[in-house]
C-alpha cells in the first residue's frame, strides 16, 4: 500500500513516475497531509470570511438588524469619505518605510550576529528583546519620552548643536518616527535570517574565496541568492502585516497629528468599534484584502526570477 502511494511522490524525475503509475492511486497523499488545514479552514475561517463579506454590502452596526445597501459602502469609500484617501496614502507611505527598513536592518544585524563572537547568545537575546516587549504598556510611555520636545533624542541632538525637532508632533515626521519603532522590533525577521544564514553550506564560501571573490561579491553572489526563499517569505509577511498595522498608531499617535499617521488599520478599527459602522468597515477591509492580494500575487509572479530553491523551483 505504502509503496503504491509513493509512486506519486515527486522528485526531480518524479513527474515521469507519476505518469506511469499515477493512475493506480487517484488521491495524492498530499491531500492527506493538508487535511488538518482544510478542516480548520472550513470550520474556523470560512464562516467569518463569508460573513464579513456579506456585511460589506449591508449597514450592519453590530447591534441593530442589518439591511442590504448594495454597493453603497464601496461607493462611499471612494467618493464620500473625507479621510479614506488620506489614510490609504499614509498606509502606502508606511509600507514603503517599514518593510524595506525592517528587512535591511534585520539582515544586517543577522549577518553580524552570525559571526563567531564571544557572548553571542547574550547579544542575540538582547536584540530579540524589543520583539518580546511587543505592545507592552511601557512602550508608549517610553516612546513619548524619547521623542518629545525635551526628550532624549533632542537632548542628544542638542549636544551636536542641532535645534530640537518635534518628532511625533510634526505631521511631516510623525509617520517616519513611527516607522522607527516598528523597525526597532525586527527580532522575528532577524531570527529567520539567522537560521537561513546557518543553512548556507560553508564550502560555497570556501570555493568563492579560492576564486578570489571579495566580500561584497560573495554577499551578492552567494549569501543573497541562498537566502532568497527567506527574504521572499519575510517580504511577503512584512508587507501583509504593514498594510494591516494597527498597534503602532493606536499606541503612540492615535492617528495624528493632522491624520498623518491615520493608517488603514486605525481607520477600520474606528469605523467598526467607535462609529459602529461594521458594514462599512467590512467593505474597507475587503478593499484592503484586494490590495494586499495584488501585491502578494505580484511578488509570487516575480519570484522565479529572483529566488532560488533546492527543489528546483518545482512547486
Amino acid at each position: 500500500m505504502a509503496t503504491l502511494k509513493e509512486e506519486r511522490y515527486i522528485g526531480k524525475n518524479g513527474t515521469r513516475l507519476e505518469t506511469v503509475r499515477g493512475r493506480i492511486s487517484k488521491l495524492s497523499p498530499g491531500y492527506l497531509y493538508i487535511l488538518p488545514w482544510v478542516i480548520g479552514f472550513l470550520l474556523f475561517q470560512l464562516y467569518p470570511f463569508v460573513t464579513s463579506f456579506i456585511y460589506s454590502f449591508t449597514d450592519f452596526s453590530i447591534l441593530k438588524p442589518m439591511s442590504f445597501v448594495g454597493l453603497d459602502n464601496y461607493k462611499k469609500m471612494f467618493t464620500a469619505d473625507r479621510l479614506y484617501w488620506t489614510s490609504l496614502k499614509a498606509t502606502f507611505k508606511y509600507v514603503l518605510i517599514a518593510v524595506p527598513g525592517r528587512l535591511i536592518f534585520a539582515l544586517f544585524i543577522a549577518m553580524i550576529l552570525n559571526m563567531k563572537l564571544k557572548c553571542i547568545n547574550f547579544f542575540r537575546t538582547v536584540y530579540y528583546l524589543p520583539s518580546i516587549l511587543g505592545g507592552s504598556v511601557a512602550i508608549s510611555i517610553l516612546w513619548r519620552f524619547l521623542f518629545s520636545r525635551n526628550g532624549t533624542v533632542n537632548v542628544l541632538l542638542k549636544a551636536l548643536g542641532i535645534p530640537p525637532v518635534d518628532w511625533l508632533g510634526n505631521p511631516n515626521l510623525a509617520l517616519g518616527t513611527m516607522g522607527l519603532l516598528v523597525i526597532w522590533q525586527f527580532g522575528s525577521s532577524m531570527v529567520l535570517f539567522l537560521a537561513g544564514l546557518r543553512n548556507i553550506p560553508t564550502e560555497l564560501y570556501e570555493a568563492a574565496r579560492v576564486d578570489g571573490a571579495g566580500s561584497v561579491k560573495v554577499f551578492f553572489k552567494i549569501t543573497l541568492p541562498m537566502l532568497s526563499p527567506i527574504i521572499f517569505f519575510n517580504l511577503i509577511m512584512q508587507t501583509i502585516n504593514a498594510f494591516k498595522e494597527f498597534n503602532a498608531p493606536y499606541l503612540i499617535t492615535q492617528g495624528g497629528p493632522l491624520n498623518s499617521t491615520y493608517l488603514y488599520g486605525m481607520m477600520l478599527y474606528e469605523n467598526a468599534f467607535a462609529f459602529l459602522k461594521m458594514g462599512y468597515a467590512s467593505a474597507q477591509s475587503w478593499v484592503l484584502f484586494a490590495i494586499i492580494m495584488l501585491f502578494t500575487a505580484l511578488a509570487f509572479k516575480s519570484s522565479p526570477y529572483w529566488t532560488y530553491y533546492e527543489d528546483g523551483g518545482d512547486f
Binding site: 518629545s148 520636545r149 511625533l168 508632533g169 510634526n170 497629528p257
Partner: peptide
Amino acid sequence: PFEEGVLYENVYADQNPN
C-alpha cells in the same frame, strides 16, 4: 504649541512630564 503638546493629547496630567 500643538507640535509640542500633541504628543500628550491622549494622556492625562498624571502622565505628562511637563
